[in-house]
Design a protein around this nucleic acid. Structure first.
Lengths: 227, 227
DNA sequence: GTGCTATTTATTGTATGCAATATTTTAATT
DNA sequence: AATTAAAATATTGCATACAATAAATAGCAC
């Protein structure tokens, strides 16, 4: 029997491994992703690495500088604000969708995820915690069932991890321990209003933990600076 | 002097021309986009065509079948519903942003766009009308200023054109003549409530014109049909 | 030693040729 | 004639080699 039914295309696998590394802060923003090096690392030809990198650049995780190579994106403060604004718009709708559609199996998935998060916290595995925190929101979007919102969140969440890597206070825990659990509780109780409220609170916590206000170090708008 | 400052990369140009053709219904859904043929058409190598096609597939306009080639996407009814649901969520927020941020120059751009639409209507150029109708919403997203919402709308609008091509009644005009103009009026008057109301009305008109309800011809879910 | 230019080195961008995979045509058998 | 098998054809997927570009180094004048 062929295993190809379960095997994903090599290019997607590469992109996924890079995404994972970025979400877990093993690849910090700004790092160069040389094609040859990656090709050797993954034991594939440069061709496939290139395709994975262009794919990631479409998702915004990687920035391509023509003739200069691929770098892990360094989101600007403005981009961070735009991203969080978008999430505050989208995620309440996701909550509504999940409450309206979720099957018992779906709710089990949410509970299982909380267990994983709990375990990562018990281990003190901060990198895993950040990654799982992102995946919680991607899981919600998946259960929400809207394909476009799902795709959007699957891009915004890894980018959020990058933003945390760039702007979060180094020692501060990414977000209060039980916020995800409380959101799931409200969803299970089909209490949309509470769940949305908790979600918005949660998103505000994430944003408040970021140092986006420092006026001295604000981004330079090279495009409009001259002429 | 080099013109390269104004010249876009060849790959993007190809992708754009294909996008335009799709938006104007010159390339109907389901059509095969053979690599060799496109390469000859655009007088470039197959390599660049391939990259343009993978880029378009990331945006959802083109669907890649492994070893079988690229086809103009045929959105399912479910995808059409998800898309319109997403637009109803996003576009009211865009309206709010535009009213909050728009400069006089921005408003001029909106007016200029209305003039273009009017001209296309006067000419009876139905293809151009559909394309411009899409671009109106992309322009609003641009003026809204949120980069992520902008990117999202720049994907949803061409897809909407595809959906119209697939599901719209052949003879029916895509949408009532002056809805865009009325939305712009409300924006100029900074009347957010009216503008949002008109926008939602407008989106519902688009959706109502689609034949998405026919139960006999609903999509087959091949993924979950077996096993 | 500093600033400039030229050369070398490294890295990305692209075309091309071949292998792998579908599709179509032809042939053959019932 | 219909169905299946086999061969031929066409198309996509991929690795590789080379060209174009940028970065790093070396050389040179002052």
């Amino acid at each position: 029997m062929d295993a190809s039914l379960t095997t994903k295309p090599a290019i997607e696998q590469i992109a996924e491994r890079i995404t994972d590394a970025i979400m877990e802060h093993r690849l910090p923003p700004g790092v160069k992703l040389g094609e040859d090096r990656l090709a050797q690392t993954f034991n594939v030809s440069r061709t496939k690495v290139r395709q994975a990198l262009t794919s990631l650049s479409k998702e915004g995780l990687v920035t391509l500088h023509p003739n200069r190579g691929a770098y892990v994106t360094r989101p600007t403060r403005q981009e961070a604000l735009d991203l969080m604004e978008t999430r505050r718009l989208i995620e309440p709708e996701i909550i509504r969708q999940v409450i309206a559609r979720a099957t018992p199996t779906d709710l089990d998935k949410l509970k299982a995820h909380l267990v994983e998060e709990e375990r990562a916290r018990a281990e003190g595995n901060r990198r895993l915690i950040i990654s799982l925190t992102g995946r919680f929101h991607m899981l919600l979007a998946e259960l929400g069932g809207n394909l476009f919102i799902q795709k959007l969140m699957s891009e915004l969440c890894p980018l959020t991890c990058l933003i945390i890597a760039l702007y979060d206070a180094p020692q501060m825990p990414a977000c209060p321990e039980d916020e995800h659990a409380r959101i799931v509780d409200a969803i299970i109780n089909k209490d949309a209003e509470s769940a949305i409220h908790l979600m918005l609170h949660h998103l505000n916590h994430i944003q408040d933990a970021l140092h986006l206000g420092d006026p001295e170090a604000r981004d330079i708008h090279w495009e409009t600076l001259f002429g």
